[in-house]
Amino acid sequence: METELTLRIDGQDHHLTIDTRTTLLDALRERIGNTSAKKGCDHGQCGACTVLTDGRRTLSCLTLAVTQGGAEITTAEGLGQDGGLHPVQQAFIDHDAFQCGYCTPGQVCSAVGMLAEYADGWPSAVTEPGTTAELDHDEIAERMSGNLCRCGAYANIVPAVQAAAPRREGTNAGGAR
């Protein structure tokens, strides 16, 4: 069954007539021509399709496009401003935090969303209850665990995210583990 809707992707509106079955991921990749978000598993098990929905990291493979009218979707392609790279993207290049690059746009979006969550004071599974987490190796690794990387770049992803994190006074967030 088809329906009409407008998707707002990376600041641009796209008017579509779309199958109700179409996921946001397939709408991006197969209808709109934005292939930044990747399909790795199509079932929410790898994170390669991660996008930001109204600033929050979500999985576009488990999101039906028809539910997304009015949402602000950002892909890794639309993260940078004025044609430049987002600091997280630059840090990924500097730290060689990827190899094949297929999980990378999802990792980048996830890192951007995760840093915002951290800035909002959200805890993770490894945060000592009742404390405010330092953004150390274990915190980043746990918070980024929804993004699988088969090339095994985790040991570079963690320092890349750490380097891109906004510095806080009196912390050593940028330091190596």
Binding site: E77, Q90, F98
Partner: peptide, 13 residues
Amino acid sequence: GVRKVTGTAPYAY
């Protein structure tokens, strides 16, 4: 690098 971190490097599909 830039193509990969922005997701604009075209893979087969």
